[in-house]
């Protein structure tokens, strides 16, 4: 007897640092998520329109605007509100609070552990 497995959600991953972007993609694919990647605001919006992701994992420091701005753009582009996880290497004050204010599921500091990353994505998955 076959059991129907629920399809894992599609995660849009945005980070301007290519090695990290590739590592995040590997990690999430290894956990059976479908992954779409983008390295800046503009390409993220294009990818979001094309692929209609379920979850967004957004770096805060991006070359053409920050992850918070991108978060708003993604909400405008989509018919649904994407659960979002923010990730950053920055220690600037108030980023965590800003993320909370924008309804983020989680806020992850780089370097991250795979446990904290997957826990945040799983939490986001519950809100899909």
């Amino acid at each position: 007897m076959q059991t129907l497995q629920k399809k894992k959600p599609k995660v849009l991953v945005v980070d301007d640092h290519n090695p990290i972007l590739a590592a995040l993609k590997l990690r999430l694919e290894h956990a059976n998520y479908e992954v779409v990647v983008a390295h800046d605001n503009l390409s993220a919006c294009v990818k979001a329109r094309e692929s209609n992701p379920d979850i967004a994992l957004l770096d805060i420091d991006l070359p053409d605007g920050n992850g918070f701005d991108l978060s708003e753009k993604l909400d405008q582009l989509s018919t649904k509100t994407l659960p979002k996880v923010f990730i950053t290497a920055s220690k600037s004050e108030g980023l965590r609070k800003q993320a909370e204010y924008r309804g983020a599921v989680d806020f992850i500091e780089k370097p991250f552990t795979c446990e904290s990353l997957l826990a945040a994505i799983e939490e986001a998955e519950l809100r899909v």
Binding site: H17, A23, R27, A89, K91, K110, P111, C114
Partner: peptide, 24 residues
């Protein structure tokens, strides 16, 4: 310090995660 922190942590994130990926 904040700039240095950001610049150091980006490659460190890559290094740590690739090691973790291989380990896993």
């Amino acid at each position: 310090y904040q700039t240095v922190s950001h610049e150091l942590k980006s490659p460190l994130t890559g290094a740590r995660e690739y090691i973790a990926l291989v380990r896993d």
